[in-house]
Amino acid sequence: MIIDFKYHIASLIAVFLALGLGIFIGTSLGYDNRIGEAILNQQKQLTQGIEKRLDELKKKNDELEAINEELEVTNKVLKQYQEETLPVLVKGKLTGKKVAIVVTGYYGLNDEVKEVLKKAGAEIVSITEIIPEELTNPADIDYIKSQMKWQIKDEKEFYTKFALEVGKNLLTPGDGSTLLTLAKTDALKITGKYGVPLDGVVVIGGGLSESDLVNYLDLPLIKFLKTVPVVIGGEYSNVEKSYIKYYQKERITTIDDLDLPSGQLSLVYGLLGVKGDFGVKSTAKRLVPPIGQ
Results as ranks from 00 to 15, higher is better:
47 T>Y: 06
288 V>I: 15
249 K>L: 13
168 K>S: 12
290 P>Y: 09
39 I>S: 03
66 A>K: 15
141 I>E: 14
123 E>F: 01
219 L>P: 03
23 I>L: 15
57 L>T: 06
54 L>Q: 12
292 G>M: 11
187 A>M: 06
30 G>R: 04
100 A>Y: 02
198 L>A: 12
195 G>T: 09
182 L>V: 10
67 I>V: 14
205 G>T: 00
240 E>F: 06
203 V>F: 09
224 F>H: 14
102 V>H: 06
272 L>F: 04
195 G>C: 12
87 P>K: 08
11 S>F: 13
36 G>F: 08
92 G>V: 01
201 V>W: 03
186 D>M: 06
26 G>L: 15
51 E>R: 10
28 S>G: 07
242 S>V: 01
63 E>M: 13
132 P>H: 04
248 Q>Y: 11
100 A>Q: 11
197 P>T: 04
89 L>E: 10
141 I>Y: 12
292 G>T: 12
200 G>T: 10
248 Q>R: 15
282 S>M: 01
174 G>I: 04
242 S>K: 02
104 T>V: 13
35 I>R: 07
228 V>K: 14
59 K>I: 07
117 L>I: 01
198 L>W: 11
103 V>N: 10
153 K>F: 09
60 K>P: 00
18 A>Q: 03
10 A>K: 13
201 V>K: 01
62 D>P: 00
85 T>I: 15
171 L>K: 04
275 K>V: 11
